[in-house]
C-alpha cells in the first residue's frame, strides 16, 4: 500500500516535470516575446538593439538551455516577476489561490449537501415519477453552459431585480462577512448548479446497485426499517465510488470555474491564468499553470487515497 502510493507519487512528479517543460515550450509559442514588448514600449529601439537585448537576456539560446536556466532559478526560489501586476509572481498568486479555494469549497459543499439526499431519493424508487424528475434536472444541470447560466443569473438578480452585485468580491469601503458573501452568492450558485448533476447521478446509480445486494435483503429480513436499511446499511457502501468521483472532480472543478470567475470578475486562479495569457505575462502564466497542474495531480492522488481508505477490500500491489 505504501509502496503503491510512493509509485503514484513518483509518477505524479514525473508528469509534473514533463508538464513544466511542455508549458515552458508553449509559453514560447505565444504571440510576441519580451523583446517585442520592449520594442512596443520604446519606439527608438532599433533592430540591432533588439538583437543585442535578445543576446543579453539569453533569448537566442536553444529552448532546453533556457528551460534549465528557468528551472534552476525556480529551485533557488526565484519564480520571477509579474509584468502586469509589477509584483513577484507568488505575491500575486496566493490571494488568487485563496479566492478560488473559497469559491470552489463553498460550491462543492453545497453541491454535496444537496446531491446526496437527492440522489438517494431518486434511487429508493427507481423509475418512479420522482426519479424521472430528479434525473431530468440532473441532466439539465450537466448540460448548462456555465458562462450562460452566469449571464442569466446576472440579468435576473443584478439587472432586473438589482438585489445582488454583478461581479467583483467586495464593495470598496465596506468590509465584513456580510458584504463579502453577497458577492459570492451568484458565482457559488453557478458553480454548484453546473457540478451537481454528475454527483446526483453517481449517488443514484451507486445506491440502486447497492440496494440489490444480498446483505440488504438480509438486513430487511432481520426487520430493519427502510430508513435504517438505506441510511445505515446501504449508504456507506454506495458512498465509496461516489467519493472517488468527487475527489477526482476537485482538480477538474478548479479549471471548470475559469469561465465563471471571468464573468463575475472574481479574482481567482482561473481569471488570473486567463488574464496572464491574454496579457503576455509569461512569468505569471507559467507559474499559475504549474500550480493548476499540481492541484489537479493532488486531486487525483487524493482520490486514490480516499478510495483505499474507505474500502479496505481494495489492496494495491
Amino acid at each position: 500500500m505504501t509502496r503503491y502510493f510512493l509509485d503514484r507519487l513518483v509518477q505524479s512528479l514525473v508528469v509534473l516535470g514533463v508538464m513544466s517543460f511542455v508549458i515552458y515550450w508553449l509559453m514560447g509559442l505565444m504571440p510576441g516575446d519580451p523583446i517585442d514588448l520592449m520594442i512596443s514600449a520604446d519606439p527608438k529601439l532599433s533592430s540591432a538593439d533588439a538583437e543585442r537585448l535578445r543576446a543579453i537576456y539569453g533569448l537566442d539560446r536553444p529552448i532546453t538551455e533556457r528551460y534549465f536556466n528557468w528551472l534552476s532559478a525556480v529551485f533557488s526560489g526565484d519564480l520571477g516577476f509579474s509584468r502586469q501586476h509589477a509584483k513577484p509572481v507568488l505575491t500575486v498568486l496566493w490571494p488568487a489561490l485563496g479566492n478560488t479555494a473559497l469559491l470552489l469549497g463553498l460550491s462543492f459543499l453545497l453541491a454535496i449537501v444537496i446531491a446526496l439526499p437527492t440522489g438517494i431519493a431518486a434511487a429508493i424508487r427507481p423509475y418512479s415519477k420522482m426519479d424521472y424528475l430528479i434525473n431530468f434536472l440532473a441532466f439539465a444541470g450537466i448540460s448548462l453552459p456555465s458562462f450562460w447560466l452566469a449571464l442569466l443569473l446576472i440579468t435576473l438578480f443584478s439587472v432586473i431585480l438589482a438585489v445582488l452585485p454583478a461581479g467583483g468580491i467586495g464593495t470598496i469601503g465596506a468590509e465584513g462577512i456580510w458584504d463579502r458573501s453577497r458577492f459570492l452568492v451568484l458565482p457559488v450558485a453557478t458553480v454548484t448548479v453546473v457540478s451537481i448533476g454528475d454527483y446526483i447521478r453517481y449517488m443514484r446509480s451507486e445506491m440502486i446497485q447497492t440496494l440489490r445486494h444480498d446483505f440488504i435483503r438480509t438486513a430487511r429480513a432481520k426487520g430493519a426499517g427502510n430508513g435504517r436499511v438505506v441510511y445505515v446499511h446501504a449508504l456507506r457502501n454506495a458512498l465509496i465510488p461516489v467519493v472517488t468521483v468527487v475527489a477526482l472532480d476537485i482538480g477538474f472543478l478548479f479549471s471548470g470555474a475559469l469561465a465563471v470567475e471571468i464573468i463575475f470578475a472574481y479574482p481567482g486562479m482561473g481569471k488570473l491564468i486567463f488574464d496572464a495569457i491574454m496579457g503576455n505575462d509569461f512569468n505569471l502564466a507559467m507559474v499559475a499553470l504549474l500550480f493548476a497542474t499540481i492541484l489537479t495531480l493532488l486531486g487525483n492522488l487524493a482520490a486514490d487515497l480516499v478510495y483505499s481508505w474507505l474500502d479496505p477490500r481494495i489492496s494495491y500491489k
Binding site: S255, L258, I277, A288, A292, T296
Partner: peptide, 13 residues
C-alpha cells in the same frame, strides 16, 4: 498523465 492535467487552462494556452 493527460487526464491529470488542468483541462480548460491548457486549452486556453
Amino acid at each position: 498523465a493527460v487526464i491529470a492535467l488542468p483541462f480548460l487552462p491548457l486549452l486556453i494556452v
